[in-house]
Amino acid sequence: MWKLIERLEATSDAEALDSVTLPFELRMRGRLKAISNGGREIGIFLDRGPVLRDGALLRAETGEIVAVRAADEPVVTASVPSGLALARLCYHLGNRHVQLAIGQDDEGGWVRFPPDHVLEALAARLGATLERHKAPFDPEPGAYAEGLGHGHGHDHGHHHDPADGHGQVYDLQPHLAHRHGHNHEH
């Protein structure tokens, strides 16, 4: 198993030997096991905090480089004209404290989020055209994120490897995962 312990700088010219495709929920974790796209067992042992972004490079303790890919997953893309309509949509959705990916194309602006009927109704009321589909979800890191998603470093902590054999990916330290629920009034 390759033990991936170091985030490489975004400007690194290192070349990946393999890649691993993960949904956003797993790219938020610093400890997990997975099977690479090349079929190799890997363990990710990173510092907590920065989310693994699509294209991130990780170095194994033995030197191999693995690229991170964002998996296609169920999302809703809300499209509006760029400018004030996009700003208003981002403001109201962001005020719900949800992760949002924001972008624009030839048609205007868009905001992408995980399926949620309350958010979808809000976006529709704000004039957005909604599309439910599968696509990579790589939300904005937030203004207070370390390096705006470009953190680096590695750790040398003591880790346990709870191999359970019941799946390809699982959290190696679930008690460290930050989880909280949100109450949405309907």
Score class of each variant (00 low, 15 high):
178 H>T: 12
148 L>S: 07
20 V>P: 13
171 D>W: 12
127 G>C: 09
146 E>A: 03
3 K>F: 12
145 A>C: 10
162 P>Y: 00
43 G>T: 12
74 P>H: 01
97 H>L: 07
137 F>K: 05
13 D>Y: 03
127 G>A: 08
112 R>C: 15
22 L>I: 05
118 V>N: 07
145 A>N: 14
18 D>F: 07
117 H>N: 03
33 K>Q: 15
21 T>C: 12
177 A>F: 00
170 Y>H: 15
22 L>C: 11
57 L>A: 09
112 R>N: 09
107 E>F: 01
20 V>W: 06
60 A>P: 13
50 P>E: 04
104 Q>I: 00
145 A>I: 04
94 G>F: 00
9 E>M: 00
44 I>S: 08
174 P>C: 12
104 Q>E: 11
156 H>Y: 05
129 T>V: 03
43 G>K: 10
112 R>Y: 01
59 R>T: 03
77 T>R: 13
25 E>S: 15
46 L>G: 07
65 I>S: 13
166 H>L: 15
25 E>C: 13
115 P>S: 02
79 S>I: 00
6 E>I: 09
149 G>C: 02
47 D>S: 11
22 L>W: 06
73 E>G: 08
81 P>L: 00
62 T>R: 11
30 G>T: 01
174 P>I: 08
144 Y>W: 02
105 D>V: 04
10 A>R: 12
96 R>C: 14
86 L>W: 01
71 A>K: 13
112 R>M: 14
125 R>M: 06
100 L>T: 11
19 S>Y: 04
124 A>V: 05
179 R>L: 15
121 A>D: 15
74 P>L: 03
38 G>C: 05
109 G>K: 04
84 L>T: 05
169 V>N: 08
86 L>R: 02
81 P>R: 02
149 G>I: 00
155 D>A: 04
68 V>E: 13
44 I>N: 08
118 V>P: 01
23 P>N: 14
126 L>N: 09
108 G>Y: 01
4 L>H: 11
46 L>P: 07
112 R>P: 13
50 P>Q: 01
174 P>F: 07
87 A>R: 06
34 A>E: 09
56 A>K: 05
137 F>S: 06
137 F>W: 07
17 L>H: 12
5 I>Y: 04
60 A>Q: 09
176 L>I: 02
68 V>A: 13
118 V>S: 08
80 V>F: 00
63 G>Y: 07
16 A>H: 09
69 R>E: 15
25 E>H: 12
12 S>T: 10
21 T>A: 07
47 D>I: 09
22 L>P: 09
80 V>C: 04
64 E>H: 07
169 V>S: 15
68 V>R: 11
27 R>E: 12
113 F>C: 03
160 H>I: 04
159 H>W: 08
122 L>Y: 02
115 P>C: 02
48 R>W: 00
174 P>V: 06
110 W>M: 03
161 D>L: 05
44 I>R: 14
165 G>S: 10
181 G>L: 09
184 H>E: 06
68 V>G: 10
142 G>N: 05
92 H>S: 12
34 A>Q: 06
89 L>H: 11
118 V>C: 06
30 G>V: 01
16 A>N: 11
159 H>P: 04
